[in-house]
Write a protein that binds this DNA or RNA. Structure first.
Lengths: 114, 114
DNA sequence: TCAACAGTTCCGAATTTCTGAACTACGGAA
DNA sequence: TTCCGTAGTTCAGAAATTCGGAACTGTTGA
């Protein structure tokens, strides 16, 4: 397992963020992580929208979110803790995350871009 | 050639909008249409970013933008006039278009979501 | 009717996405 | 150390999507 890649703030690309959030399943995952604030483990995220996401698919989703710069994942023992990078992203692209979550009917959490 | 489909305001889906604008080429097309205000014909849009977009690809791009509800196309004689639906989209998802265009470094035009 | 033009549709190739199976990484028990 | 269970990643083949040249549709003008 190679170390997880997280883009630097100046390397964030709007197209990657929009693409990552153009899938409602990923939006649900992201909103959950951003809402909870942290500690969104993969297993905890596997059945958000009434269907169980296969873990290989979930892993791919996490990778897309991570490489878009939306979340940060760090290994903590056996599991992976994921937390949002909303504040960072908001520095770089003010209002973007909030507008997107709001369009999806998911009011951004206080801990994130709000 | 079947008549062009344009979604009603209440049928706009954030995922379609984000997907449509997750491609820099489409963003360039959309920004051009939104900036000019109208009369963005396909041939006028074919070489925005230093490369000539094949017309079949361009037609697909226009379809994606149209079906996301971002532009409206109407036949005017031989050619097709495209104009943005920014104001409508902004009613439905306030601030979304502005935040996205701003993230791409394309300040939204006064005629659109500003 | 014919030609030219603007854009769409068709279709095969290339790319991407999905997901079960195999695998890696870590922690605990013996 | 070795073995086992858990969490998540990577692999690989099938399915779906995207790209773009060629053919086509629809319009204008001669």
């Amino acid at each position: 397992m190679r170390p997880l890649f997280h883009p630097a703030l100046e390397d964030l690309k709007p197209e990657a963020i929009l693409y990552a959030l153009s899938d409602p399943e990923r939006v649900a995952i992201f909103a959950q992580i951003a809402g909870v604030g942290s500690s969104g483990t993969c297993t905890a995220l596997a059945n958000l929208g009434g269907r169980v996401i296969p873990k290989s698919s979930l892993s791919q989703h996490m990778k897309v979110l991570r490489e878009a710069g939306l979340i940060r994942g760090e290994r903590q023992g056996v599991e992976m803790r994921n937390h949002s990078r909303c504040q960072e992203v908001d520095q770089r692209f003010p209002g973007l995350i909030a507008a997107i979550l709001s369009a999806y009917g998911r009011p951004p959490a206080a801990t994130s871009a709000g």
